[in-house]
Design a protein around this nucleic acid. Structure first.
Lengths: 227, 227
DNA sequence: CACTTTTTTGTCCAAACTGGAGAAAACGAG
DNA sequence: CTCGTTTTCTCCAGTTTGGACAAAAAAGTG
């Protein structure tokens, strides 16, 4: 009897219908887009419903209220991103640390292009202190940071990444890729950069790697991991 | 240089009063802050007036309407920034190209810290295509880009900056400094970076320079500029 | 199939907020 | 003191806001 139907996970007395899932998905995608463009305050639930091509009371039905919808949207986008990142890590687990990180950066650049909202949403919320930002940090950002931090420190020890605060390094890489692609609308007109071209994406990844991972791997790096 | 009558459209038959100037300034500062936090659509003129501690019809009086106020606010912030940048260039015109660019980056980092709105406003407008973005690019971004582009190309020729698309390089530097500081609210909690500490600012500048201008100046660089 | 739950539709609301207008008062430069 | 400049106060007409709710439609289940 609890009204805590956060999204789709309390009492499945009966199976959730397919059209319901579709509606939720459409709403989530639309919400991500709208929130990333206009921020939480600047986005109306009606705008979201319209983008999703759905009647707006469905938001109340599926997500309770605007705040819950925002959270669900954030989970939605980070879930997809985390999956993509984990996949990259899995595929390259046998590579050397530099190559592994390089491919992770490439994967990030590609993802940021297909889903610039990932970065935009964070920027929108970070533009002034608010409870959603805290939630976002604890729930999504910190885990991501923690997972990458160790890799960067290792690369510094190996002389691949430049010395300096690894936290700064991490965020600069993040901004040079995600932040850059989030500016897509601007870059073409201001600097002649076309982020829609695959060659540009490759050039971005390449440059980031060259700049942030300039060193070569030492030849004997396997020693430390070997049994 | 034509003095832009950004504010009052009619020439003053009598001198502008001091309190009027103060009001305009307060409104501009408040507008910059509000627009940078919530974007154009998400900001109301009443919100701006309230932040400025001023009655809201004064916006109509001084700036005609919301759109004009936004433009005046953009001019306001870019004017201050351009002044700060020109000052850095002037002070270091006798330095070698690398040092000149390094100090410019430092100046930018410092400015971005004291006025993170500079970057935020651009991000807000770039989040979806709109006429203000076009205006911003033509009026402020492109001139800035053009002024810096040549310096970067020269540094690449000298082997100081890494090869690759200079436009990408420019924007990565911009994001690693301005974009990073615009995330100030987030960085402390997510990565333990305190952008309020002067040491952090120095570390940021230093890292950017080390990473984006890794090469040393050749000893004979004076040849080409000497008459 | 009948039945019951899930999902969608259509309508409504009360309140807040929107950008802006305009008269009149207050102020200050000359 | 005079008169243009600036501010205050009040008003408005329209839109938008997030959300409530009953009833209809659709679909899973036995």
């Amino acid at each position: 009897m609890s009204e805590e139907t956060v999204v789709p996970s309390v009492p499945p007395a009966r199976k959730q219908q397919q059209r319901s899932i579709v509606t939720q998905q459409k709403l989530l995608d639309a919400a991500v887009e709208a929130f990333s463009e206009n921020g939480f305050k600047g986005t109306s639930t009606r705008d979201i419903a319209e983008r999703a091509g759905v009647h707006h009371p469905l938001i109340t039905y599926h997500f309770k209220n605007k705040d819950q919808l925002w959270r669900a949207a954030a989970n939605h986008i980070f879930k997809a991103f985390t999956r993509s990142l984990a996949q990259s890590l899995e595929q390259n687990k046998d590579m050397c640390p530099k190559e592994r990180m390089a491919r992770m950066i490439s994967a990030y650049v590609k993802y940021a292009r297909s889903q610039p909202a990932l970065h935009k949403v964070m920027v929108q919320e970070a533009s002034y202190p608010n409870p959603r930002l805290d939630w976002l940090i604890e729930r999504h950002l910190k885990p991501l940071f923690d997972a990458t931090f160790g890799m960067l420190v290792e690369l510094q020890k190996l002389g691949v990444a430049p010395p300096g605060d690894p936290a700064l390094l991490f965020n600069m890489i993040r901004l040079s890729s995600g932040g850059l692609l989030a500016l897509g609308n601007e870059l073409k007109a201001s600097s002649g950069i076309d982020v829609d071209s695959p060659e540009t994406l490759d050039a971005i990844s390449e440059l980031i790697i060259k700049v942030f991972l300039p060193g070569e791997m030492p030849e004997n790096w396997k020693q430390q991991t070997a049994a």
